[in-house]
Amino acid sequence: MKITILAVGKVKEKFYSQAAAEYIKRLSRYCRLDVIEVADEKTPDGASDTVNRKIKDKEGERLLSHIKDGMYVIALAIEGRQRSSEELADRLAELGLRGDSSLVFVIGGSLGLSESVMARADESLSFSRMTFPHQLMRVILLEQVYRGFRIMHGEPYHK
C-alpha cells in the first residue's frame, strides 16, 4: 500500500518534526509513505470571509495539483466521520483489499480545506470535534496510521 500525507505548510517545530520522523520510520515496514507539503498562505488578522475563502482556494489548488486519478482521498475535517483506532485499521484493510492501494490523507492549513478539495475527497475523517494545529495533526495522523497497521497485523499496541 502507498500512503501519501498531503499537507498545507511545513512542520516548523523540531519536536513535531522528530515525532513525525519517528512514525515515518516505523511505518516503512508496513507501507510506502510520502509526505508532500504545499505552501500555506499568510492569513491576515481579522480577515473577511471572502479573504479566508480565497486563501483556502489557493491552498486547495496547490493540494489538488498533487492528487492524481486513481488515488483514494481522505480529507481530514472536523465534520468528517469519527472512527476508533480499530475502525481505522479495518478501513485501511478494506481499502487495500478492494484495490484502493494509493491513499492520500489531506491536511488543510489553519483555515481548513477548500470546497474543491472536499468535493474531490472520497471520504472525510475527523479525529475530534476539537481543532488541532495542523502540525500536530500530522503527528496524530501518522501515529494512528501506524497503530492501524499494528492492529491489522495482530501486533501489540498501546491501548
Rank of each mutant, 00 (worst) to 15 (best):
K2C: 05
G9H: 06
K10M: 08
V11L: 15
V11D: 09
V11K: 06
K12D: 14
K14A: 11
Q18N: 15
Q18Y: 10
A21P: 03
E22T: 10
Y23F: 15
K25L: 13
R26L: 14
S28F: 12
S28D: 15
S28L: 13
R29A: 14
R29I: 14
L33D: 05
V35L: 13
I36V: 14
I36G: 01
E37F: 00
E37L: 00
E41A: 04
E41I: 01
P44I: 08
A47T: 08
A47V: 12
D49S: 15
T50P: 00
I55F: 04
D57N: 13
K58V: 02
G60M: 02
G60K: 01
R62Y: 00
L63Y: 04
L63R: 02
L63I: 07
S65P: 01
S65Q: 10
K68T: 12
G70W: 06
M71D: 15
V73Y: 05
A75M: 09
L76T: 08
I78F: 00
G80I: 11
G80Q: 10
R83N: 11
A89R: 02
D90R: 14
R91Y: 11
R91N: 09
L92M: 14
L95G: 04
L97Q: 14
G99S: 13
G99E: 11
D100A: 10
D100S: 11
S101E: 15
L103I: 15
V104E: 01
F105T: 07
I107Y: 05
G108F: 01
G108K: 00
G109P: 06
G109S: 11
L113N: 06
S114H: 08
E115K: 14
S116E: 14
V117F: 00
A119I: 06
R120I: 06
D122F: 08
E123M: 14
S126R: 01
F127H: 00
T131G: 03
F132K: 03
F132N: 04
H134S: 08
L136C: 01
M137R: 00
V139P: 02
V145Y: 07
Y146N: 01
M152C: 11
H153M: 00
G154E: 09
G154L: 03
E155W: 07
E155C: 07
P156G: 02
H158K: 11
H158P: 05
